[in-house]
Design a protein around this nucleic acid. Structure first.
Lengths: 229, 229
DNA sequence: CGAATAGTGTCTATTAGACAATATCAG
DNA sequence: CTGATATTGTCTAATAGACACTATTCG
């Protein structure tokens, strides 16, 4: 097993998801150079020799999306490494998923002509560079699935939020509509999911809502299943 | 984003799980060379320049465990890439999980003094090489978790099996005991999980059991949850 | 007040789990 | 028959989802 190693280029690519106007949106950058010049792609960058993978992902997040470590969830998804996935040569890509609330409009970084969030529905998957359409599809399905059995949904929201806003996350990401009453009960009774802050919103044309923050728990037990309701 | 790339060594490491005598067991190889000479480690090897990651994992599986592609489930888990995880230098490891039924005793391959399956309970986690204890723990937890919501359990069994054997997989991997009657109902009614072959076992001191094969489904809906019963 | 949103109550069909009962083999 | 394992039946408590109802604000 200690046979000769042949070094390969290792990159991190990011699927940065946020909600904009109730639509699940992803950050894409427009490529300036070949290959795929002019095409849209996931933000990414090569891993530096002394840099941990997670640190590389944070650096890319900061440099391509001006997003610091605050209020941004970051998690490794999986690694794409088919020998022919990059026409320039062998590149292994460790894909991470980042989630955040109200992410700012990005400023285009190095090698990018433009950068902006796209409503998922308006993306032409066939036009994405490399294997990024496949990566994006897998990442979105992972996010949808993780909403069921983890407390990930709170990552899409600011530090203080209402149950309606939380329900809006589920509805936007899953593309379904949920019963407000039943959702309220399930969310507030699920241990570790949300913490009642004892504060209220200003009324916005209805009864003021209580404010909650994200709880300590990471796993939702029992899970909040899709498909039902 | 097309900034200079600094090539890094990329390896695949394998967590090969099987059931031996009702115990969840993992394949470990004893290292011959420094670092960690004499210590036990997960089987692994470097990825070749023209080789897909999955192909590299299959190659390692074959060379270190004499396991071909038949009857072996193989899935990428996650990638470990901390800058200091290997004292020889920077090595990125793409960890895969393999599952199989009745896996044969391995023959030690290159760079390995010995290779064998270990009952998980008898492994001294502190003695494993590199960060392999952490990797192993995460992989086992992943396997336990995937039994709940996927049909993965059938990967631990031969092509034809009884519901009791399937229940035995759950009991061994989860370390719990399950009600035979309730389990039988849930397994046989879960769409896509098992297919009744219309055959029976020879009696082994009790009523003969029907034989089943793995169904086409990959996801268990509803899931078979732990913790209850 | 009426409209709108938040939150609670209630009913019913379904389900999980405990446990009993029946089925079918070996010896 | 006895012992063992497989499979099905039954009962009960808990739950999910449908939907009605109450609460609290704004205009």
């Amino acid at each position: 097993m200690d046979a000769a190693a042949a070094p390969l280029d290792v990159a991190v690519d990011l699927v940065v998801l946020t909600l904009r106007g109730g639509k699940l949106s992803v950050l894409l950058v427009q490529r300036e150079d070949a290959p795929f010049a002019g095409a849209w792609a996931l933000p990414g960058g090569f891993v530096r020799p002394e840099e941990d993978l997670l640190a590389a992902a944070h650096r890319v997040l900061d440099s391509e999306a001006s997003l610091g470590r605050e209020h941004t969830y970051l998690e490794q998804l999986r690694t794409y490494g088919d020998a022919d996935r990059d026409p320039r040569g062998r590149v292994i890509s460790v894909v991470h998923m980042a989630l955040g609330a109200n992410l700012p409009d990005p400023v285009s970084g190095d090698g990018a002509a433009d950068a902006r969030f796209w409503d998922l529905a308006e993306i032409d998957a066939g036009a994405l560079a490399f294997d990024h359409a496949e990566i994006l599809t897998a990442a979105v399905e992972r996010a949808r699935s993780k909403l069921e059995y983890t407390t990930l949904a709170t990552s899409f929201l600011p530090a203080e939020f209402t149950i309606s806003q939380l329900r809006g996350v589920y509805e936007s990401v899953w593309g379904t509509s949920l019963d407000p009453g039943n959702f309220h009960r399930k969310a507030t009774r699920s241990p570790g999911f949300v913490v009642d802050l004892g504060k209220q919103t200003d009324g916005t044309g209805g009864r003021p809502a209580r404010l909650f923050s994200a709880g300590e728990g990471a796993i939702l037990n029992p899970p909040l299943l899709r498909g039902g309701e």
